[in-house]
């Protein structure tokens, strides 16, 4: 038998793209559990249906492009997109909303650009924004959390809400970020007491969902799936701006840093969206800048913009800027005195 001829290196590390994706999926589990606990089975049903649509869309696109299905499906990237988008969608979304969102994510934002690795925009966030702009009503109604009065729907009701949307009238309630945004007369403290949406240190339910996503993100960080730079920079800039404009909790306050850190999609965005390697800056310094600017945008849109939450817009805007940031943050190569390719 002839000997094989291969070039070095012959050894390969244990990491694989499939494993990276599976780790990300696994890391979302605590957050999904907390969301399900506080808001019922809506998110879970979203995810299940989303995964089905995602696999179908991915297979369809791969078939059109003449690519082997098995090889590309097994990288699990379609599932990650489905998970991330469905977590971001309001629970009890109708089936068609989810389908349109997933199809936009997979077909438009990902496969049209050449599939995994070639998409300039985060597919989940692109899908989210398409939905948010097209169906603002469905996208801005969120179920009330456990403990804010009313029953949390069960699995059957969740399925009904998803697949027979006309027959199920979901109870909805403004999110804490909404409430804060609409506030124009109350001190933060009073606002807190008068609205059932607020919890111990942020939104009721939301605060623990954020803690759970933080835990999942920390685990990914520990597994070296991504570096700390982008998420930490985002959280830092967001807290800094919140601290500067907290205004002692006056009626014009933008909310406390703690409130911003643990409200809405902050932690989810920081550890699951901002860290998307394909669409973020690549150098470490670049990731710091990328993350920090997302934090700034999130704060600005939350407090000054038209939408209560802003992670999707902030991420998409910075996706545009990532190549530009990369251009200016090329690291200094060994043996070079300057950064820009000079010796």
């Amino acid at each position: 038998m002839a000997l094989m001829r291969l070039t070095s290196p012959h050894a390969h590390g244990p990491m694989s793209t499939q494993r990276v994706m599976q780790y990300v999926l696994l890391a979302t589990v605590p957050g999904i559990i907390v969301l399900t606990h506080f808001f019922g089975f809506g998110t879970l049903v979203n995810i299940l249906w989303g995964c089905v649509v995602a696999i179908a869309c991915e297979s369809f696109a791969l078939k059109l492009r003449g690519r082997p299905l098995g090889f590309y499906l097994k990288d699990c990237s379609a599932l990650v997109t489905a998970f991330l988008l469905c977590i971001a969608l309001p629970p009890y979304s109708p089936w068609w909303l989810i389908a349109v969102g997933i199809a936009s994510s997979i077909l438009l934002a990902k496969q049209l650009y050449g599939g995994l690795g070639y998409n300039p925009f985060n597919p989940a966030m692109a899908g989210y924004v398409i939905l948010l702009i097209s169906f603002p009503v469905q996208m801005t109604t969120w179920a009330p959390p456990l403990g804010a009065g009313g029953e949390v729907p069960g699995l059957w009701q969740a399925l009904q809400a998803c697949f027979t949307p006309g027959q199920y009238d979901a109870v909805t309630m403004a999110t804490p970020l909404d409430v804060l945004k609409q506030n124009n007369s109350l001190l933060i403290e009073d606002l807190w007491q008068q609205n059932p949406q607020f919890g111990t240190f942020a939104g009721l339910g939301w605060e623990w969902a954020n803690v759970a996503f933080l835990a999942g993100g920390a685990w990914l960080l520990y597994q070296r799936i991504f570096t700390w730079h982008a998420p930490v920079a985002m959280l830092a800039s967001l807290s800094l701006l919140a601290a500067i404009f907290y205004d002692g909790g006056s009626s014009a306050s933008g909310g406390s840093p703690l409130f911003h850190l643990f409200s809405g999609a902050t932690m989810f965005g920081a550890f699951f969206i901002v860290t998307d390697p394909v669409t973020s800056a690549v150098s470490l310094r670049g990731r710091l800048i990328y993350g920090a600017l997302i934090g700034v945008l999130v704060y600005l849109i939350r407090v000054r913009g038209n939408y209560p939450d802003a992670v999707a817009f902030a991420v998409l805007i910075m996706n545009f800027a990532a190549p530009f940031i990369d251009y200016y943050t090329q690291p200094r190569t060994y043996g070079h005195s300057d950064k820009r390719g000079e010796k």
Binding site: T17, F71, R224, V278, V282, S283, Q330, P331, Y334
Partner: peptide, 22 residues
């Protein structure tokens, strides 16, 4: 080695590079 998949720009290579390349 199995067939190569798409580069997801994860940056693990940049972290490993002893010459600080990208």
């Amino acid at each position: 080695p199995p067939p190569a998949q798409a580069c997801i720009r994860c940056g693990m290579c940049a972290e490993a590079c002893p010459a600080s390349l990208l």
